[in-house]
Design a protein around this nucleic acid. Sequence first.
DNA 1: CGGGAGCTTGATATGACTCAACTAGCGTGG
DNA 2: CCACGCTAGTTGAGTCATATCAAGCTCCCG
Lengths: 260, 260
Amino acid sequence: MREYMAMNTPTPLDLGRLRHSCAHCSLQQLCLPAGIDAAALQQLERIVRRSRPVQRGERLYRVGTPLGAVFVASSGAFKTVGLNESGEETLLGFHLPGELIGLDGLGEGAHRCEAEALVDAQVCEVPLDQLSAVAMQLPSLHRQLLRVIGQGVDRDHDHTSLLVRRQASERIALFMQGLGQRYAQIGQDGHRFRLPMSREDIARYLGLALETVSRGLGRLQDDGVIAVHGRQIQILDPDELARLAQGEEDCEPARQRRRG
Amino acid sequence: MREYMAMNTPTPLDLGRLRHSCAHCSLQQLCLPAGIDAAALQQLERIVRRSRPVQRGERLYRVGTPLGAVFVASSGAFKTVGLNESGEETLLGFHLPGELIGLDGLGEGAHRCEAEALVDAQVCEVPLDQLSAVAMQLPSLHRQLLRVIGQGVDRDHDHTSLLVRRQASERIALFMQGLGQRYAQIGQDGHRFRLPMSREDIARYLGLALETVSRGLGRLQDDGVIAVHGRQIQILDPDELARLAQGEEDCEPARQRRRG
DNA sequence: CGGGAGCTTGATATGACTCAACTAGCGTGG
DNA sequence: CCACGCTAGTTGAGTCATATCAAGCTCCCG
């Protein structure tokens, strides 16, 4: 958060944030409140624990933690990491503001993965039993709950179709493109953003070696598709990025390689 | 249901099947009815369209089909295949009896993938609006609905941790092991089963070339871990399979390769 | 200024893909 | 009943992309 503050919100504390409610949240249209009526919103607000700060590296829950609540970041970013029997970690997903965290564990009643803040963040916490109870009273909230669950499933499926791609360059292009789209969806600049995760996280998310990710990004930069400065990313040529993401390997005749 | 019966199962009709209900279904404990009380079960039965036969190759829904119902096979097997913009297909999952099909599309209200029967099958269909309506009356069913949704998410995550494995042999071993476990869960023999899917389907599910799958299975057979006769599989050495699945590459000193 | 994590870059080895031929199994039709 | 053709699966040879190992670099942060 230090970084963010320095970069984006000069004064250390935005008082408005303290008064934040679902009704005033910029993410309202993306989050549980989307599409529910005023009465339902009030009910929902009553049970939501709002905007708790979470430090980088802090975990919302661990493997085995009984499922008690779902979370939504209002700022920052999270990763969810699965641990299998043999102790290996699998990077299951990244979660930007507005995207529900903690649906795993719905199956067994306890979390099968861990949710860790990639940068300092703010999270809203929604106790699941209360959410269920309210959802059973309010059809619109019930629908919306199923909708955000479905969106999580969709993101998992997107991840899967990333992972089955053969070419590393394809996975990387698709990842950057998808991230840009997700930033755009939450009202941030989809062409210029800061990666909240390390190269290693990206590599594990994409099923690649971290060196391959590094090289892939370098290549995209050399080709003039994106600009990379550490974690700062700028998408220079979205169309070309989309082309590469769809497996159409360059062969670009007119475009020169290496410092385009 | 009458129509279905009349249409598709001409003479060799098992009368017992006509009486089939959730209460008598062998999959009861794995399916939506699991853990709900008798009253809830009755309510649920009222809305479930039971045991429609589905032919191999037939699809339950296609991309873009408005989400209207979820499905559970009572016999047979399905695959779900996602189609992305560029027309490429991604094999998102296999569904054995008792495993919910059709949760994708919850996010957008329309299916993003297609569910196709791998072999002739029987499916129960649960209209989603009615299911929602009943779930809102019955806490136990509501809980159970979230639980089966969560199990679907868990399976997707298992798939993901398969895909990030580096070694093809590891993915293949893990796949066979997982399939065996799933068969065991539904009361079938987990050590001896028939694959409902082709090598190509397996390959696409695992993010490998089909030849690699074929070789991998051959290798497992040569090592005496499994026996393969076409799609008929027998797991001979579950412990060794588990070892291989966890990445502990053989180096087996005593065990001889090629026709063990 | 020093330390260290995070990242880049280089050289090399190898595992998996690709292309290709071949086989097994199965249903069809002569 | 066998020949045929088709689909699914196996097996082989060669190439290439990516993992791996190993330096070196850069940027923070103390």
